[in-house]
Amino acid sequence: MRWLRRVGVTLLVLVLLVVGGSAAYLGWDRLAPVRLDVPRPGFDVDAAGVRTRVEHWPAARPSGRPPVLLVHGFAESTYVWSRVAPLLAADRDVYAYDVRGFGYTDRVPPYDLAADTDQLGGVLAALGLERPVLVGHSSGVAIALSWALRAPGSITGVVAANGDGTPYFGDDRTTPGAGPRWLLVPPVAPAAVTAVVRHRAVVRSVVAAQCGPGCPVDDAAVDRWRAPFLEPAAVDALVDVVRRPLIGLTDAQETTVAVPTAVLYSSDDESFARPQALATAARLRTHLVTELPGARHLALLGEPERFAAALRPQLDALG
């Protein structure tokens, strides 16, 4: 019993030290915040009550083809489209926006699929886009497909790029993916995330691993990733997003999508490789499936020319 009491007291002391240290670190961060002088391109619109940052790349040679609206994934921003969007804008208008909770859009909960879908509809209305093609990347596929179910007549089609639009991981299709959310307790989780985004090393490593050898990982590029997460309340919003169930449609819901669709995947993307891409295409009943051999999850940033070359025929086919 004496030994158990000592262990209990030791654990309690450790917990108090971690919690106290985390709280002190967050207090220091608020007194000495990091603010980065990075480009913040774009403009703001009101999208279903959410101040939303939008970027626009006008068509270099207008062709009358449907415009494209790009929807980024988890922990991303319009920056991930910054290298490929100008290539897609050769003959059509291209737009991208920051999903609620990320980038330079307001952090407005709830962070769930219904609210994200409302925001997407608000962006379409604010920009006055007529039947655009939606291109979702990673978890952004779920938002694009969700809007396709809600208002199919308002869009021309959807491209699912590096994501299947469901809240699952791996081969288990019975339960939504749910990480160890019990670990995300305040102030420990916000302090850990803050420590990561205040420094370049971890961000650089993660981006390089997901992006491949062609990815920009110089200090300026890494700061483009970090800057939105250094905005006031950004870390709290990120932790809140991670605590919630992953956004996504069920397999059954995807089979009811009625708009034309296409699937684009990278062969070396561990989260969405050939088996997942073919299964997604089967649910969406599309034969438009394109592989990027040797590419990774963030091929749109690391290999923009190849990504654009693969995506452009799909856009033309949907249009």
Rank of each mutant, 00 (worst) to 15 (best):
G294E: 02
L292R: 08
A32D: 15
Y95S: 01
G170W: 09
G157M: 01
E291H: 06
Y168I: 07
P186T: 15
V239M: 02
G21D: 04
V203Q: 12
S139Q: 12
G20K: 08
P86K: 09
F272W: 01
L230T: 11
E305G: 13
A258I: 06
S82Y: 06
R131C: 07
T175H: 15
Q276P: 13
H56N: 12
H56D: 08
D164N: 07
D223P: 00
S266K: 06
G128N: 07
P216W: 04
D164E: 08
T78V: 12
E55Q: 15
R285G: 11
L292T: 03
P232W: 09
V202E: 15
D269H: 10
A282P: 00
E291T: 08
T290N: 10
P41W: 07
D116E: 14
G103L: 02
V193S: 14
L278M: 13
A279C: 05
V80F: 11
L183P: 05
C211R: 00
A142P: 01
G122A: 08
T286V: 01
R244W: 09
P66Q: 05
E55A: 12
L311S: 03
V257F: 08
Y111V: 11
G212K: 00
Y265A: 12
W57H: 09
W147A: 12
V34T: 11
A308G: 05
A125L: 09
